[in-house]
Write a protein that binds this DNA or RNA. Sequence first.
DNA 1: TAGATTGTTAATCGATTAACAATC
DNA 2: TAGATTGTTAATCGATTAACAATC
Lengths: 208, 208
Amino acid sequence: MVYKTIPKSVIERVPLYFNYINKIDNKMCENISSTTISQELGLGEVLVRKDLNIIAGNGKPKIGYQVSDLKSKLITLINNNKIIDIIIVGVGKIGEALVKYQGFEEKGFHIKQIFDCDKNKIGKKISDYQVNSIDNLSFYCKQHNIQMAIISVNSDNAQEVCDNLISSGVKGILNFTNTLLVTSNNVSVRNVDIASQLMMLSLEINNK
Amino acid sequence: MVYKTIPKSVIERVPLYFNYINKIDNKMCENISSTTISQELGLGEVLVRKDLNIIAGNGKPKIGYQVSDLKSKLITLINNNKIIDIIIVGVGKIGEALVKYQGFEEKGFHIKQIFDCDKNKIGKKISDYQVNSIDNLSFYCKQHNIQMAIISVNSDNAQEVCDNLISSGVKGILNFTNTLLVTSNNVSVRNVDIASQLMMLSLEINNK
DNA sequence: TAGATTGTTAATCGATTAACAATC
DNA sequence: TAGATTGTTAATCGATTAACAATC
């Protein structure tokens, strides 16, 4: 089996395809064309065709892409058909909301454990989770071979937590703080600082 | 005064510069070079120079950029020196976390009002805010000339809320749902669906 | 067969990087 | 003056779009 590396630009669009395919999966259409998808998602027609060729690679002229096949290819690509365990470090306002939010499971992700450094929080329950001490973070990650983590601690502690996670084997971090995390090259970081998003939104508006 | 339009790629980096300049502003250095910034942010040297030229446009050879000037130029660019009022539509788990999160004010944004359609929530207090009925959304936006909104409702209602906001004059939307919002061209939408972010993170990891 | 749709090759566009001239 | 640093022009790179051949 040949694994191609997927261009960054395509990675940004995969969730779009995934969400769309899951939505139409209920309606019983067996095949779908790139033209239809491109219209629904507001993307270029050829762009979708190229993306789907990278993602699935078996469209049929005149017929299109088999929905069920596309779906399974997407799932394989995203999480290799197994649920991915994630941990959340920092259960302040945002961290707690993430814990309570239930939408991850159906996308193939499972919150396995949550951590905090606040003694008043450690041991307390949030949803079905008991807050674990950040002192146990490294051991836990190694023991359970955790690959992905969400950092929602105070900005000042973000880099320290990040270093800890990486040295414990974590390969991908979703960073909710506004700290620019310094990492080695084989670790992926995605930043979702909300204040930054608001700034970019405001810039886009002023830019029109 | 000449207003240049700022390339999309630069807009994505402006919050980076903003956060960095605000961080070093405390330490008393009057000027800073693009070389230093590029190292700290892990960006190309020339890239930073080009960005700052677009953003501020008055670096001085041998000296660099005046920190205070850079800061005020960034603020002007982002929010025109006035606090931007935003509203939050949908105070479920994530919406509520956003309301409680205090970090917006210092970045120049103010949560002005929060809305929900759930009768059990309307009238209740979250932080200092009383949840307003979504029935009042349109009138409120028009009355207060609201430009930016956060949508954190159930995915199924996102498009409806979006249409309502746009027809009420809103120009920018931060979308926390996984619904792909259809809008006219003069409205900006930024998507921050967290499950999508996890998918992209997983893809990046598998792609290495 | 003809038409619809895919996938590929070439052209265009935008963003980044390299080279270098200008200048405090 | 010499060195450090900016800003600009040219080259490169990657992503998107256009044109078109292949095929069910």
